[in-house]
Structures are given as structure tokens and as C-alpha cells.
């Protein structure tokens, strides 16, 4: 076991040497991997932060319940009391037809014209504010259906279209993130396999000699696998640094914006597990690319 670990440590050292011997292409590929991994990482942070922001946005959602013309103030009051008892309703505000008319007069500036009307044309309105934890599109839809079925209700309107739209947009960005990640992962595979290809060509003679004296393909492959994984590791590390830099630069202006809206929102950077996932992805892609590249070239160097 110790001998085995020692052998791997030696190979690791020699592949560090390999990378150091081609600093140009190594730096290049580490840089490109860094940027390539940083892009989806940043997009991911954008979505994650946007989701946190939108979860703060209750209060925005409410249901406007317009009652039928014949419903009296007492009936409206008892309906409101019954609704507040529902688990998914947080609060019910009654806007009587008189209040509504007064408000409308004030806001519209049609005061005199409205005075001329023989009767108040406006219905009584119940503004229903749902419980925050019920503020999910499906549950709200459910509430809306039930409210519409009440006999006293003329019209029920959900004022959440913008929240819904926001969620749809986030979903879209998530989808785009997956597609983008796959494409960029392919790019990383190509970059690493190209650097590995150069490393193999550099050591073509050595590979042939090792084969002639009885080295297995597995033995030959090992330093290149380490090489690829190291590139992935360094690239991932660079991506994490780039992302931290972006978050650092964007945090103050976003903070100012959040304060303007009276929000305690703070831009979140990468957590430790998220950083580790980036590292795992980088190392994994590096391994995959070098495995593929070495396999292809060793087969091409047959027979020897």
C-alpha cells in the first residue's frame, strides 16, 4: 500500500513537471478552463440570488375579490371572517363600495361627474393576502378556484402575474444554464484533450521506449491522467477566484439598490460545497478529457 501511494506520488510529481515544462500551453488551458467554468458558475449565482430575492417578495401577491351587487356590508363582513379562518389566507381587507368610490374619485379626478350618478356602481371588494408559505403558483391557483366558486363572488382576480412571470424567467435561465453548462463542458473537454495531445506528442519517443520495455498502457496513461486532472483542478480554482472577484465587484452596487428598496438582501457568493462541486467538475472533466485523448493516441501509435 505504501509503495503504491509512493508510486502515485511520484507520478503526480512528474506530471507537475510535465505541466511546468510546457508553461505556455498549460497557462493557456488553465485560463480557458477557468473562464469556461466561471461563466455557468456566475449564471448559477445569478439564479440563486434572484430566487432568494423573489422569496422575500410576498405582500406583492394578493387576490381581489369583487362581490356581487346585492351583497350587504354584514354579509361581506361575515364572508371576510370566514375567509381569514382559512389556512392559506393571512389577512382580508374589506373595501366597501363607498370607500372604493371615494378612493376612485380622489384618484381619477372625475369627482363631480361621479356625483351625478344615481347609485354607487362599484362593488364591495375583499383584498385577500395569502399566507406566505402558500405563495406558490399551484397553491394560489387552487385558492383562486375555491374563491370563484363562492356564490357571493362576482369576480376573483389574482395579482401575481409578475411574480409568475419572474418565476418563468428564472426557470428559463435555469434551463439555459444547463444547456450552456453542457456546451462549456464540451469546450473544456476539447481544451484539455488538446493540451494532453501536445504532451503526448512531446513524449512520443518516451512512450515508445516504455512500451518496448514492457510498460502497460495503464502505466503510460497514468501521468497524463494526472496532468488532465491537475489542469482541471487549477482551472476550477481559477474559476472560483474569478467568481469571487465578480461577486466582490458587484456586491456594493447591489447593496445600494437593495437598501433603496428597504431590503436586507445581500448578494451571496459560492458556498464551500458549491466551490467543491466546481472543483469536482473541473477535475472530472480533466480526467475524462485526458483519458479520451490518451486512449485515442495510444491506439494510433499501435503497433509497438
Amino acid at each position: 500500500m505504501r509503495a503504491y501511494l509512493l508510486r502515485h506520488a511520484q507520478v503526480l510529481l512528474s506530471s507537475i513537471g510535465q505541466l511546468a515544462r510546457m508553461p505556455g500551453s498549460t497557462l493557456m488551458s488553465v485560463g480557458v478552463i477557468g473562464i469556461t467554468l466561471a461563466l455557468p458558475g456566475l449564471l448559477y449565482l445569478l439564479v440563486a440570488n434572484a430566487e432568494r430575492v423573489s422569496s422575500e417578495w410576498h405582500g406583492g401577491t394578493h387576490v381581489s375579490l369583487f362581490l356581487r351587487a346585492g351583497v350587504t356590508a354584514e354579509q361581506a363582513q361575515s364572508l371576510a371572517t370566514a375567509l381569514v379562518d382559512r389556512a392559506d389566507v393571512n389577512q382580508v381587507r374589506i373595501v366597501s363600495s363607498e370607500q372604493a368610490l371615494a378612493e376612485f374619485k380622489e384618484l381619477s379626478g372625475f369627482g363631480d361627474a361621479l356625483d351625478a350618478l344615481p347609485a354607487n356602481p362599484l362593488p364591495t371588494l375583499l383584498v385577500i393576502i395569502p399566507e406566505p408559505r402558500y405563495e406558490q403558483p399551484e397553491l394560489l391557483e387552487q385558492l383562486l378556484v375555491e374563491l370563484r366558486s363562492l356564490t357571493a363572488v362576482e369576480l376573483a382576480q389574482l395579482d401575481m402575474e409578475w411574480v409568475q412571470r419572474f418565476h418563468v424567467i428564472l426557470k428559463l435561465i435555469r434551463r439555459a444554464l444547463i444547456v450552456l453548462s453542457v456546451l462549456l463542458a464540451l469546450a473544456v473537454l476539447l481544451i484539455v484533450s488538446n493540451t494532453i495531445r501536445l504532451a503526448i506528442l512531446n513524449r512520443r519517443e518516451e512512450i515508445e521506449i516504455i512500451r518496448l520495455i514492457g510498460g502497460t498502457d495503464r502505466f503510460i496513461r497514468r501521468p497524463f491522467l494526472y496532468n488532465g486532472m491537475l489542469q482541471g483542478l487549477l482551472g476550477a480554482w481559477m474559476a472560483i477566484v474569478l467568481i469571487a472577484l465578480c461577486v466582490h465587484l458587484l456586491r456594493p452596487p447591489i447593496q445600494v439598490l437593495a437598501n433603496l428598496y428597504g431590503s436586507a438582501f445581500r448578494v451571496a457568493g459560492l458556498s464551500l460545497p458549491e466551490s467543491l462541486i466546481i472543483v469536482a467538475i473541473g477535475v472530472g472533466l480533466g480526467w475524462l478529457a485526458s483519458r479520451w485523448s490518451v486512449g485515442r493516441h495510444l491506439r494510433a501509435m499501435q503497433p509497438t
Binding site: 521506449i209 514492457g214 510498460g215
Partner: peptide, 18 residues
Amino acid sequence: IPYFRREVGVIFQDHKLL
């Protein structure tokens, strides 16, 4: 093949050293 080659020592005209 690799294991078989370990049983044969080969010397080349051009040495084939690293």
C-alpha cells in the same frame, strides 16, 4: 504483450535512451 516483453531484454543500435 507488456508482460511478455519484460522477459526479453532488447538493445537497439540507436540506444533509445531518454
